[in-house]
Amino acid sequence: MHIKKTLNMNQVKKLISEVLAARNRYLDTVRQLSETQAQWKPSPEVWNVVDITEHLYRAEHGGIHGMWKVMQASRDGKKTWEGEKFHKGLTIEEIVERTWKPKEIVPAVAAPRLGGPIGFWAASLESLQVELNAFGHELNDEELESLIHPHPISGPLDIRQRFEFLRFHIDRHLNQVEELKSLMPH
């Protein structure tokens, strides 16, 4: 039993380190931009780097909070998911491919709405690693695939898939930032 726990804890640590690596790639990129560049939009309906970073913060903060609530409810003996686990065993890339439209509408709770300096949102996004590490420390091995926290677009995701989603989501938006950078006036 001790060996199994160690192997699974390594899986949690691996998932968290993958999110950290994605976060660092993203932050390294946005911190190279001036405030003017971070605020620049090619058109009114396109998010700028500040909007994207605020969105990442709001989405991840809500996701970590939701996972933690599900974990605690389960430990308190409350049922947390009663539906079918139809994404069981799939990677987040497979799930997104099956469930997302090419241009998805952001859930209101994760929509950027405050704006402001890129430094604030970069620091806020970076601070979420503390919450994620603390959650991972509390997480038991068996909970990675037994706990379900539904995503507003993709539906029921287990905690492993939720960790994968955090990494995927940051990288997805890093690609948007890179695209914006290529369009910025020089």
Rank of each mutant, 00 (worst) to 15 (best):
A73R: 07
P156H: 04
H87D: 08
G155R: 03
N10S: 15
Q72W: 11
E143G: 02
V70L: 08
L15M: 10
H169C: 08
G89H: 09
L27Y: 06
S146G: 01
V50N: 02
D28G: 14
E164G: 09
L128Q: 13
D28P: 01
H137P: 00
P152C: 07
L7F: 14
E179Q: 14
E82C: 06
K13C: 11
L144G: 00
I52C: 02
G77Q: 09
G115P: 06
H186D: 10
L27F: 07
T99S: 13
F135Q: 02
R31D: 13
H149C: 07
R58Y: 07
K79G: 11
S124V: 07
F120S: 09
R172C: 03
I64E: 00
R75F: 11
K41T: 11
E126W: 02
S154P: 03
A122L: 07
I118Q: 01
G62Q: 10
R160W: 09
S74P: 03
V50A: 05
N133P: 03
P42Y: 08
I3Y: 09
K13P: 06
M1T: 11
G66S: 11
N10Q: 15
H65K: 14
V50G: 03
W121C: 06
D171H: 06
G63C: 06
S74I: 00
P107H: 13
G119Y: 05
E142A: 15
S146L: 12
W47L: 05
V96F: 11
A111W: 03
S124W: 04
S182R: 15
D158F: 01
N133L: 13
A123C: 06
I148D: 01
G83D: 05
V49C: 05
P112A: 10
R167W: 05
Y57Q: 05
P150C: 04
A22C: 10
E138R: 14
V49W: 00
G155S: 05
E138S: 13
I105D: 12
L56E: 03
Q37D: 12
I105G: 03
I159A: 03
T29W: 03
F120W: 09
K5F: 10
G63P: 00
G89Q: 10
R75V: 04
G77V: 07
L144N: 01
I3A: 12
Q161L: 05
N175S: 13
L56A: 07
Q176D: 15
G89F: 12
S74H: 15
N10D: 13
T36F: 02
G89M: 11
I118K: 00
R58L: 15
P156F: 02
I3H: 13
L114D: 14
L166A: 15
E35L: 08
L56N: 03
L132C: 06
Q39W: 01
L20I: 13
I52E: 00
T91P: 04
G62W: 10
P102L: 10
T99P: 02
K103M: 11
N10A: 15
E142Q: 14
W40E: 01
I148S: 03
Q72C: 04
G115K: 08
A38W: 00
V109E: 10
D141S: 15
N24D: 14
V96C: 09
L157T: 00
L147M: 06
P107I: 10
